[in-house]
Design a protein around this nucleic acid. Structure first.
Lengths: 175, 175
DNA sequence: GCGTTTAGTGGACAGCGTCCACATTAGCTC
DNA sequence: GAGCTAATGTGGACGCTGTCCACTAAACGC
């Protein structure tokens, strides 16, 4: 349901794919990586668009919101890519990147936004450790429920309401 | 990957399945319904085990926690059933049940727990409307990330920490 | 100019979901 | 009990999928 379809789209015979990928799963893994990078790029672009100094409480919140928004928008606009991005390896994606290097992965950017929230004095430093996982879970859960789950038939307006409620819910828990 | 496998498990020829289900999707839908009911039953059982009067703030919180716990435990112990439960229809599962009837669906029980939180004076009534979706999203997101997503390789201890952090995160946002 | 690497082709295989025609069994009515 | 009917299971076939194998055609360095 994937390999032959991909080769057809490229206009080539199915076996040609085996010159580039060991098997179906490796092809899927490549798409997964590309999708993850695309999501990371969108996040970075949206965050960069938010004005305000680093450490300013309002700007820090807006940047976190931009990250959540980019996540949900990506899931809404590219449901196939989004599903693929999380369907495969990215093994131990939860390990923090080497300190000092800028981390453009989605998780890395979320961590940076939460760190800024601490620096801005909005989030208590004692509550910072590990808080990225509940935040991530909240946004990811909505993306899945509304994209492929039981809420997938919700009309657009209701869906937007869910997104707003969810981002508010997160902001509420962080302050 | 499903139909023939199921008939094999039952010890019957593949076509026999077509006497009971129109096609593969209908079989999957049946499993989905069963899994959803199983999840609802587990929740109800765990909630019933929590002592304390209806309307008592502490008990109300514990009941909400029992619901989240049952959800995450089900996802951890029965990853296949859990994935199937949310892979299919249950169309418009987000529509509230007819008032007056007791709702044993997972969403219905979550709503009941949140209503009790309002009655107990823990959750402001003005914030009640629609709050079930962020709460659901948070728990569901963790279940997906840790069950099939990038966190699936996390060791058990870390996984438990994620669960605790997540439930605390929810409680924090609700009070 | 020739050998090596790289990319694509063609044919085959088993497994999947699905359709069709046929056989068996259970339960009912007379 | 005999005979009809509905329910259930069987066997064979189809097109689709991912995958393996042997073979061919272009690209490139020496």
């Amino acid at each position: 349901m994937v390999l032959r379809e991909a080769t057809r789209a490229v206009g080539v015979v199915p076996n040609a794919a085996y010159r580039h990928f060991a098997d179906r799963d490796e092809l899927l893994a490549a798409v997964c990586s590309a999708a993850m990078r695309e999501l990371g790029d969108r996040m970075a672009a949206d965050v960069a668009r938010v004005p305000g100094d680093h450490g300013d409480p309002t700007a820090a919140f807006l940047r976190l919101g931009a990250i959540g928004d980019a996540y949900l928008t990506f899931a809404r606009e590219q449901p196939g890519l989004f599903a693929t991005a999380f369907a495969l390896p990215e093994q131990h994606a939860y390990a923090p990147a080497a300190p000092g290097t800028e981390d453009r992965t989605p998780l890395g950017q979320l961590r940076a936004a939460l760190d800024e929230l601490v620096e801005a004095g909005v989030l208590d430093a004692k509550r910072r450790e590990g808080i990225e996982y509940p935040v991530w879970s909240t946004v990811h859960g909505l993306a899945v429920l509304a994209g492929q789950g039981p809420l997938r038939n919700a009309p657009g307006a209701e869906r937007q309401r869910f997104e707003e409620l969810t981002l508010t819910f997160i902001a509420n828990s962080l302050s």
